[in-house]
């Protein structure tokens, strides 16, 4: 799937890009590690200026709070230190926002690993999963497979929680239930996403 196609689909169906929809994710605690990966993933779609990267990120993932330039610089610096990205030759004198960056092979590997390692299922990870799915779509990777893997991890976690619930005291049981319901909500989203991906694939004719 090509990015322009995705955008076209997104625009026409206002699914992923729609602010309204993204506002459904009331909690979005994106860890620093994940932020790095997201930016890296975005860079995998093509080399970009720092400035463009920020706006790209904001448009896709910015919620109430947009990403500060400082955060971008720090993340980009770290990525460079880890040889995930490299600067393109050019106007070195300008600030980071004006510098052009490109992903390295190492970086691609890291993105791949990130995409296809299921997150530890907990109730706060929707945004990560969301981000991963979008990135996978953008870089034309097997988004469906990553969803399946996450689903499997979720179910495994739910099994664990269910077993823990047996014979537990009221408080523990209540906590387990709470977690279970949130995991279920995730799974619903995962199922829906899978279904939409299939629809999309059919309509595009692949």
């Amino acid at each position: 799937m090509r990015y322009p196609d995705v955008l076209r689909y997104c625009r026409s169906s206002q699914v992923i890009v729609s602010r309204r929809l993204t506002q459904l994710y009331t909690q979005c605690i994106v860890t620093r590690m994940d932020r790095a990966m997201i930016l890296l993933g975005l860079l995998e779609t093509g080399s970009a200026y720092g400035y463009d990267l920020k706006h790209h990120y904001d448009r896709l993932f910015g919620l109430r709070k947009q990403l500060a330039f400082g955060q971008i610089y720090a993340t980009l610096a770290r990525l460079m230190r880890d040889s995930c990205i490299e600067e393109l030759e050019g106007e070195v004198s300008r600030g980071p926002e004006r510098r052009r960056y490109r992903i390295t092979a190492e970086g691609r590997d890291r993105v791949d690993e990130w995409l296809f390692t299921p997150d530890i299922p907990d109730e706060n990870l929707q945004s990560n999963l969301f981000a991963k799915t979008v990135i996978a779509l953008l870089i034309d990777d097997d988004a469906e497979r990553l969803l399946d893997m996450q689903r499997h991890a979720h179910l495994e976690r739910m099994r664990q929680l269910t077993t823990d619930k047996q014979g537990a005291d009221f408080a523990t049981a209540a906590l387990c239930d709470h977690a279970l319901f949130h995991l279920e909500a995730d799974l619903r989203w995962i199922d829906l996403m899978s279904a939409r991906l299939r629809d999309l694939r059919e309509s595009i004719g692949q």
């Binding site: 497979r145 399946d148 499997h152 179910l155 739910m158």
Partner: peptide, 24 residues
Amino acid sequence: DPRTAAYADREVIVRDGQIRTGFD
């Protein structure tokens, strides 16, 4: 229903008449 499936030892996903494999 996932919470029902959580009582099982393992799950298989059937989609379009086939079982999704590849991970476990």
